[in-house]
Simulated scan of single mutants.
Amino acid sequence: MLQESFDNVSTQLLSLYALHKYLSGNPQLTWVLEKNLGASLLLAGMHQENTVGYSSQLYGNTLLGVVELSRGLRAVYTQMPLIWKPGYFHRALNVMEKVSQMPGEIKITKDVIELLKSALESAILSEKEKVPSENDEVSEDTSMCPEDLEKTEAEMLPEYLTRFQELHEKLESLGKIETTDLLNLTTHLVLEKLPECEKPDIEKYEAQLKEWQSDEAGLIAREKEIREKLKIEYEAREAAKSSAQ
């Protein structure tokens, strides 16, 4: 999935199903896996305008927020087509807010909301348990840029949790929290949508494959022509040298 462009609907659906099926087993995740899974969920989910898509975006941003907080922003975007600006927990909350403002039946699944809540609470607890070192002292340097004085992600966590609670209550009051778990919703979506999109996607791929094969055949023929031409020119030069001697 690290190489997928997610242009085809069938790819989006199958990728989301594979991701949620894997995560439903509660695997032990390294931070690298959290980053890879988070990015895949986010990028695939952004193509689906439905409950599965927005819940996947929330899930992806949550995993990336955990990595950002524990490993730093560079660890998140290195070798990833992701935004370089901090604030993946903030983006997760933005997904909740966007869904709360949307008309229609799009919701956020309860299990993913609980995941974000747990991630925020665990992060706050972890920050409280950290023992300050001498290197953590606030600098008295008055020449610091305004950007340097902005709150870090760790310092924003209490505000994030407060905003989460407000958005949770808003979604609940609007009936926009889906109680069916995300894997079951994704499975249903795949069974419903895959048959209608799989055939055109396969036909599109086969057309691309024929085009690639035609290009490859043309390149091979062109290479053969150039080799033959160079061979003739070489033989002509060698003959000219022999005649001169």
Rank of each mutant, 00 (worst) to 15 (best):
T142P: 01
T142K: 11
M144F: 14
M144G: 07
P146R: 03
E147I: 11
E150W: 08
E150C: 07
E150Q: 10
K151Q: 05
K151P: 00
T152V: 00
T152A: 00
E153M: 04
E153T: 07
E155H: 04
M156C: 06
M156S: 04
M156F: 00
M156K: 01
L157A: 03
L157E: 00
L157I: 04
L157C: 04
P158H: 03
P158N: 02
E159N: 10
E159I: 06
E159A: 14
E159G: 13
Y160H: 02
Y160I: 00
L161N: 05
L161C: 03
L161K: 08
R163F: 04
R163L: 05
Q165G: 07
Q165L: 12
E166H: 08
L167I: 02
L167W: 00
L167N: 01
L167F: 02
H168M: 09
E169P: 00
K170I: 09
K170M: 09
K170Y: 05
K170Q: 08
K170L: 13
L171R: 01
L171F: 03
L171Q: 02
E172D: 13
S173A: 15
S173T: 01
S173M: 10
L174W: 02
G175W: 00
I177A: 02
I177Q: 00
I177M: 02
E178A: 09
E178F: 01
T179V: 11
T179G: 11
T179W: 09
T180S: 05
T180V: 15
L182Q: 07
L182R: 13
L183Y: 09
L183C: 06
L183N: 04
N184S: 15
L185S: 03
L185G: 03
L185H: 03
T186H: 06
T186K: 06
T186E: 07
T187S: 14
T187N: 12
T187I: 08
H188W: 12
H188L: 12
L189N: 09
L189D: 13
L189Y: 10
V190R: 04
L191M: 14
L191W: 11
E192H: 13
E192M: 13
K193M: 14
L194W: 03
L194I: 04
P195F: 07
P195S: 07
P195L: 05
C197M: 08
C197N: 06
P200S: 01
P200C: 04
D201G: 01
I202P: 04
I202W: 05
E203C: 15
K204G: 15
Y205E: 14
Y205W: 12
E206T: 11
A207D: 13
Q208I: 08
Q208S: 15
L209G: 03
E211P: 01
W212K: 14
W212G: 04
Q213C: 05
Q213T: 11
S214N: 14
S214C: 10
A217F: 06
G218R: 15
G218L: 12
G218F: 08
L219W: 11
L219C: 06
L219N: 09
I220W: 06
I220Q: 13
I220Y: 07
I220H: 10
A221G: 01
A221N: 06
R222E: 15
R222C: 09
K224A: 13
K224E: 13
E225L: 13
I226H: 01
I226P: 01
E228D: 11
K229A: 09
K229D: 03
L230D: 10
L230S: 08
L230V: 07
K231L: 11
K231C: 08
